[in-house]
Every structure is written in C-alpha cells, then in structure tokens.
C-alpha cells in the first residue's frame, strides 16, 4: 500500500468531479497554501489568492483528465504547492526563490503559456454552442463542462439508453465541427 493512501482516496473522490468534494479540498488547502507563499515570496495576499486559483485550475485539469493517478509520489497538498511554486517563479522572473524545503516544483510551464489560446478556443465554443442550438448545446455542456457521466446525461435529457446518449454526444460534436 502506498504511504499516501489517504490522499489517494481523496484523489478518487475528486476524480468524480463532485462539487462538494472540491469545495472541501479547497477549504482545507487554502490556508496552508496562502501562508506558504506569504512566508516564502514577496507576493501579497490578493496575489497569493490568485496564485492559489491558478494552481487549483491546473490541478483540477490534471485530476479530471486522469493525468494524475494513484499511486501518488507525494501528498496532494505538496503537489499543489509544487504547481504554485513554478507559477510564482513565472510571475516574478526577477526574484530568486530559495524555498528551503523538499517540495518539488511541478512542471506545468507549457500549459501556462497556452492560456491565451485556451481563452480564444473557449470563445469559439461559446459561439458554436449558440449556433447548434438545443438539445445539442445542452448535451455537450453536460458532458464537457459539467463533467456528467453518460447515465446522468441520459437521465437529465430523457434519452432512451446509454448507447443512444453516447451516439447523440458524438453526433452533436460532428455537427459542431461542421459549423467551424
């Protein structure tokens, strides 16, 4: 058994995308994360809060996409602070940080650089969703934004089966592509 068993159980809960789990995780990590960077960097309280949100977004992406998987090599809080470290370094290029701890910086640099491109793609999706109309826009939002599983989308949209729901999802995606 991994020595991070409790964190692996928590990771499993976060992977479901359950909002309450994420909120509880946020509330637990918020204070230690903020204090860590208020002690170790010149960033002020609002900047540290922004740093926490940026690190959480990257962490959320890694968890929900399945790229962060058990067995873990560190605690989740350590992993998140590691992401924060590289983001803090990027925010203050002229600052030299001596972290004086064992928390490794997490390599997330390419993802930060793609921020503008991501925002442009988000705007494009907004436009396409408006064009394809209902029910495709609702189905795709449930799948891709709210992170619903097939059975939940089936139930919400009143579709006859999981197979039919899956087919509808990819038909809608094709339709969206055709509008590009």
């Amino acid at each position: 058994m991994s020595k991070y068993h409790a964190d692996e159980q928590q990771l499993q809960k976060l992977q479901t995308g359950n909002e309450q789990e994420w909120k509880a995780f946020y509330e637990d990590i918020r204070q230690p994360f903020r204090l860590f960077f208020l002690k170790k960097t010149q960033l002020d309280v609002p900047a540290v809060t922004e740093l926490l949100h940026e690190a959480m977004v990257i962490f959320h992406r890694k968890v929900t996409s399945g790229s962060l998987q058990a067995p873990l090599s560190s605690k989740l809080s350590t992993f998140l602070i590691g992401i924060g470290k590289i983001l803090a370094r990027k925010k203050a290029l002229n600052q030299k940080y001596d972290w004086e701890d064992d928390i490794p910086e997490e390599a997330v640099q390419p993802e930060i650089d793609q921020q503008q491109e991501r925002e442009a793609n988000a705007r494009l999706v907004d436009q396409l969703l408006e064009k394809i109309g209902s029910p495709c826009n609702e189905i795709l939002e449930l799948f891709f934004i709210k992170g619903f599983a097939v059975d939940a989308v089936m139930e919400t949209m009143g579709l006859p089966s999981e197979g039919a729901t899956r087919k509808k999802k990819f038909d809608c995606l094709k339709k969206m592509r055709s509008l590009l």
Binding site: E19, E27, H60, A122, V125, L140, I145, G147, M176
Partner: peptide
Amino acid sequence: KILDGFMAKKETSFHNQMKSWE
C-alpha cells in the same frame, strides 16, 4: 480546438466556483 475550448470553459466555470468559495 473544440475540445480545448470545452476544457477552457470547464476551467472558467471551476474558477468562478472557487471565487464564490473564496
């Protein structure tokens, strides 16, 4: 591009959630 756009929207939605938690 479309899938990236969805992911960015998902992250924006998560970011907004965090603002309310904050």
